[in-house]
């Protein structure tokens, strides 16, 4: 878990991401001593910049024999001139990006993804940091949460305000936090009236949904259930289990 968080934290550090069309990054990479096939593949990958290229497309584009293509690709990877990225759209697809480019969000998924999947442990770590900030402040704007995390000692990563906002919004959807508009009074006195702010979502009693509390509310066959049908409340096994009706 520690490793994953460290990985995620590393990904959070703002890195140089050359703009589309910029060749400055490419010029720094020495490509002397490369075979023609390697050079051809490297150029093709570089031309796609941070969007990367799928092996199948690369093979089609370079039109090299299979053996030569595979060897050149392997050598380029060994020399560290290209890197393999797992696409979030299709985990079985290997995408290649030149070393000097940071894979685009559309391919890698961005900050919250690792190896083509959501980095759940990293996300839950950031969530708990946000929750800790809101708990400490009672009522906090998104800027308060962000600043609190940036200033905290245990934070090894730099987060943008947008990234913290994404996490906090997801926490609101999960009802861990509640978004309210400041009234400018009482607990809200530190926040100007009308500004959205966040507080912990607290319930004195758990929600007991009336429909979800009975078998019919969660029954997968409810659409086939009729009073006199094959599936009916009179013969329903879920009812029998629920009511412990084995007289």
């Amino acid at each position: 878990m520690v490793l994953c968080i460290a990985e995620g934290a590393k990904a959070m550090v703002p890195q140089k991401r050359p703009r589309l069309g910029s060749k400055s990054g490419a010029a720094l990479v020495p490509d002397e001593g490369l075979s023609d096939a390697e050079r051809m593949i490297l150029e093709a990958i570089r031309s796609k910049e941070n969007m990367g290229i799928w092996t199948f497309d690369l093979k089609k584009l370079t039109n090299l024999p299979r053996g030569v293509f595979d060897k050149a690709l392997r050598l380029l990877q060994q020399k560290g001139l290209i890197k393999c990225v797992v696409s979030i759209h299709n985990k079985s697809r290997k995408m290649y990006v030149a070393r000097e480019f940071e894979p685009a969000k559309e391919i890698s998924g961005g900050t919250w993804y690792s190896q083509g999947s959501l980095n759940q442990e990293f996300i839950s770590d950031v969530r708990s940091k946000c929750l800790a900030q809101v708990t400490r402040l009672r009522i906090a704007t998104i800027e308060d949460v962000w600043k609190g995390i940036q200033m905290s000692r245990d934070s090894k990563a730099d987060f943008t305000l947008q990234q913290i906002k994404e996490i906090v919004q997801a926490m609101v959807l999960d009802k861990e936090l509640e978004e309210v508009k400041s009234t400018g009074d009482g607990d809200f006195s530190a926040v100007p009236a009308g500004r959205p702010c966040y507080r912990r979502f607290e319930r004195r009693a758990p929600i007991a949904g009336a429909l979800s509390a009975i078998p019919c509310g969660v029954c997968p066959r409810i659409s086939e259930c009729t009073p006199d049908g094959v599936i009916s409340p009179n013969t329903c096994i879920y009812f029998t289990k629920w009511l412990e009706l084995d007289f």
Binding site: I214, C216, P233
Partner: peptide
């Protein structure tokens, strides 16, 4: 669901 409960 109410119909089913009533019937039961």
């Amino acid at each position: 669901a109410s119909l089913n409960l009533s019937q039961k």
